[in-house]
């Protein structure tokens, strides 16, 4: 059954969330340059429509898991930008207490089961999260995100097979930004349409415009409904693009300027802004004001992170075991 087409409020929410992610990530890059953020840091700029569509498609209690390019998902799940920025800064008020960093954002309260650093490692985890929902008899689903690099891992095949066998309530979502670090999809496979990989397991699958919130929202909502009804998993390939390199250390010399510029022409934030203005849902001036509000929110997030202390050294031995543990100390 088709749900109501997203209207004014949804479009404004999308614009707001995507703009928040964009400005947050631009700020992250700046903070990385100032050495306030260290380690690996993978930005989400360009892929914001995926987070937007996720935010509007999910229902209360649904779970989300993804890989290490996780700032956008964390924000879309409603984690406070200050807690995400503090995590990037390695501070105690970070959503993982400064113990995770860029790649390992988590929040139980927001049903965000993390940012995972081993490519493809989160795919079976996502199916297991769904197994727990099925076991407990809820109507919730797990949205399990991965990149186009992760689909080459064996974990995908083992998981797809069991998820179909057991009709697990999970939507597998490949954010195909066309580059596994510096290696293009064409250089990793003969099967260029990633969604077809599900065919081996008779899993329904389709390709979706990952630059469109509306397309992402529609696909996620519809396939999640199938999963809620006990009809099992779907595999979605969202065609998207990252504007920046794989991580902060990657100048992205493996692709052309033209390719990047072509994607920027369908920038999801610009497209959504134009739609809102065209439909007269908000004026250009009001959108500019909203943008300023978001910039202030990001500035506040940085201030919050700056004011949060680093963990004390005795935190080292906490959160490793659930009870007291006799660590070897020398």
């Amino acid at each position: 059954m088709a749900k109501k087409k997203p209207g004014k409020q949804t479009y404004i929410d999308w614009f707001r969330m995507m703009m928040l992610i964009r400005r947050f990530e631009e700020k992250s890059a700046q903070m990385y340059g100032q050495n306030k953020i260290r380690g690996f840091c993978h930005l989400y700029i360009g892929q914001e429509a995926v987070a937007g569509g996720l935010m509007s498609a999910m229902e209360d209690g649904d779970k989300v898991i993804t890989a290490y390019r996780d700032h956008g998902h964390a924000l879309a799940m409603g984690i406070d930008p200050g807690a995400v920025m503090a995590e990037l800064f390695g501070r105690v008020d970070g959503c993982s207490k400064g113990k995770g960093g860029s790649m390992h954002m988590f929040s139980k309260a927001h049903n965000f089961l993390g940012g995972h650093g081993i490519v493809g490692g989160q795919i079976p985890l996502g199916a297991g999260i769904a197994l727990a929902e099925q076991y407990k008899g809820t109507k919730n689903v797990c949205f399990c995100f991965m990149g186009d690099g992760a689909v080459r891992q064996g974990s995908l095949h083992e998981t797809f097979n069991m998820a179909m066998l057991w009709k697990l309530p999970v939507v597998f979502i490949c954010e195909n930004n066309n580059y596994a670090m510096g290696t293009s999809v064409e250089r990793t496979t003969n099967v260029l349409d990633i969604y077809k990989m599900a065919c081996a397991y008779d899993m329904p699958s389709e390709q979706v415009d990952g630059m469109s919130c509306e397309a992402v929202h529609e696909a996620l909502e519809r396939t999640a409904d199938l999963a809620r009804k006990g009809e099992g998993p779907t595999f979605l390939e969202l065609k998207t693009y990252r504007y920046k390199g794989h991580s902060m250390s990657d100048p992205a010399k493996y692709r052309t300027k033209e390719e990047l510029e072509n994607y920027k022409k369908v920038d999801p934030i610009e497209v959504t802004r134009k739609e809102i203005i065209k439909k007269k849902w908000m004026t250009e001036k009001a959108l500019d004001e909203l943008e300023e509000e978001i910039e202030a929110e990001v500035a506040k997030a940085v201030e919050f992170a700056d004011n949060s202390p680093f963990p004390e050294p005795d935190e080292l031995y906490k959160d490793v075991y659930m009870e007291d543990y006799p660590f070897i100390v020398e």
Binding site: A132, K136, S155, T159
Partner: peptide, 26 residues
């Protein structure tokens, strides 16, 4: 069969699925 589950020969997969289930309350 809900609580005693046969798997295919896929140790990486069912180990990971079990970790995910443990993260989510089982």
């Amino acid at each position: 069969e809900k609580r005693v589950i046969d798997t295919p020969i896929a140790e990486l997969g069912f180990a990971g699925i079990s970790v995910g289930a443990a993260m989510n309350g089982l």
